[in-house]
Amino acid sequence: MERSGTRMTRMDGTALPLRGDDIDTDRIMPARFLRVVSFDGLEAHVFEDDRRAVAAGGRLHPFDDPAYAGATVLVVNRNFGCGSSREHAPQGLVRKGVRAVVGESFAEIFFSNATAIGLPCVSLRRADVAALQGLVEQEPGMRVSVDLAAGEVRAASHVWPASMPHAAREAFVSGTWDATALLLDNLDEVRRVADRLPYVTGF
């Protein structure tokens, strides 16, 4: 069997709150940085245009705010990662040091891309996300714990119920999030399915 991912049950670290619904992958990783043949170095361009725009307004984007330096838990809002299927977006986040994303909801392709590279995305209720973002903004160094095994996110004295689709949670907890090995161990069966399909056999 090939490597299929390490077991991931709990991610602890400081958090980085990133507010906004419907943040698309063009914003996470602008398209001009997709002109590459490797994912290396993408961390430099995470939210680059948003960060420039915020800086031009004389403010600090959370990714440029020293208060959140070294954060490993990204806290987002609704429908995070919508739009383009570019895996460059979660790849850039992981290379930037993000180990878990907590939010109200995630776009499906972003979620499966993140899962495939070992970046868990867990959902909290809308009000709980807002509470967590507020807490972290008040006290940036606060430890946040994303507990996949227990299905909880914890910070200070708070414990919030966290959800994740069953299959993804299983994959992280059992260390099988890299699907390739699973998909490869029955190629004969795959060929049998193919050979039953009229368009494969030429009708």
Binding site: S38, E87, H166, A167, E170, L182, V190, V193, L197
Partner: peptide
Amino acid sequence: RHAVRRLPSGQTQLFIGLHLVHEVTSPQ
């Protein structure tokens, strides 16, 4: 007609009849 099996996670292993590839998302 394309299900190969049910995976332990509950997902379906699905055979893909046509795979289209372009220059941006394939080199890696």
